[in-house]
Amino acid sequence: MKKTIIADLALLSVAFIWGITFVIVQNAIETLPPHTFNALRFFMAAVLLFIIIALFFKEQLRMFSKKMFISGFILGIWLFGGYALQTIGLLHTTSSKAGFITALSVALIPLFSFLFLKQKLQWPAIAGVVAATIGLYFLTLGDSLSLNKGDFLVFLCAICFALQIIFTGIYAPHYPAISLAFVQILTVALLSAGGAFFFENWQAALTPTRLFQPQIIWALLITVGPATVFAFLAQTICQKFTTPTRVALIYAMEPVFAALASFFWTDDVLGYKALGGCLLIFIGMILSELRPEQPFVKKTIKQ
């Protein structure tokens, strides 16, 4: 019981960290361009994770293979798409809305599993997709007939995250989890660096006057360690000591934490229709994880 409580608290801290990073990253990309920031974040995370593997999981170093790198690279492409679109989208929308729209990835998983893996759609998953879709309408449109550019980019980000989770379910059983995560993170770093090189003025961004600003240092400290490396290690270790039901409910709190952080740090207040949309998306997330024969079964985790 004690290990279960500790595991649940650790996973809840991951959900909290992921939630508050929306505001933290939004503040950081006011100074650093999105691809440049992601390149720094994921290069630093890849180095830190490799050090941890070398020190504590040495046996996994012998398990690196060409097939694992290819699988990790494919997963990394989807992960890059998710983080790139999310970070760019934060330039044009609020962190609270971005948190709930990103959470749509959970509701989309059963739909994409049906389309790509021919898995049967069950009624809770269908109800979850419908609820989340209606919620997305109220959150992003309301009385307006135009879709905010940032909301649309974050919606595409949710699609990428959902596909990354589906492909993780295909590849993950064949390789060590932490080593596969390292390849994914390194892939995101390399692709982000390519995006910065071709589309951003990275030379001007990577100057001491910009890099050593408090919001950049703070953002990198949070996103590199707690939000990336610690989060993955916590998932890998803690899910052995808790149940899929509890994991599903714990991670459903991520967009709630994002909305609370946005309210307290930026005074972002959602209207009644937007709040109703958030609630419907939250319900859609929970419904998508229900199974008639076994409630609240969690397939996998987004990140």
Rank of each mutant, 00 (worst) to 15 (best):
K298N: 15
F167M: 08
T87G: 04
P34M: 10
I88D: 00
C238M: 14
V297T: 14
F50Q: 10
S95N: 02
L260M: 14
Q184W: 10
H92D: 14
F155C: 05
G194L: 15
L90P: 04
P33K: 12
T207V: 10
K298E: 13
W18H: 11
Y137N: 11
S113D: 12
P34C: 07
L145T: 14
A162G: 02
K66P: 00
N148H: 09
A131S: 14
V224H: 07
P124E: 02
M285L: 13
W78D: 00
T245D: 04
P208G: 07
K302C: 13
L85P: 01
P176L: 11
L290H: 11
T36K: 09
F73N: 03
D267Q: 15
A261F: 14
K66G: 04
R210H: 14
S71M: 09
Y175W: 07
I222A: 07
T93C: 11
I17C: 14
F57W: 10
F167W: 12
V130H: 04
S179R: 09
F43P: 00
S144Q: 13
K66S: 09
K120N: 11
I286S: 04
S144Y: 05
S71R: 06
L186G: 06
L40I: 13
V25E: 03
L108P: 01
I88N: 11
A15V: 11
L79Y: 06
I283T: 12
F264K: 04
L12D: 05
V23H: 04
D151H: 08
L249Q: 02
S71P: 03
F198Y: 12
A172W: 06
C278D: 01
I101C: 04
A54H: 10
C160E: 03
F37M: 11
T87P: 04
Q203M: 10
I301V: 15
V224W: 02
Q119N: 14
A259F: 09
I159P: 00
S262M: 02
L275T: 06
L75I: 14
L287K: 07
L32K: 00
I237Q: 12
L290Y: 12
K2S: 13
Q164T: 03
A45I: 08
V25A: 04
S146Q: 15
T207C: 00
P110Q: 06
V297G: 00
K58D: 01
F230G: 08
S144G: 03
Y272A: 15
A259H: 05
I250P: 01
A98H: 07
L111H: 02
I216H: 01
G142P: 04
V183R: 04
F197E: 08
I250V: 08
G76K: 03
L75T: 10
L48I: 12
L75K: 08
I301H: 09
G195L: 12
V14R: 08
A15Q: 12
L117Y: 07
V183T: 11
A45D: 07
F116P: 04
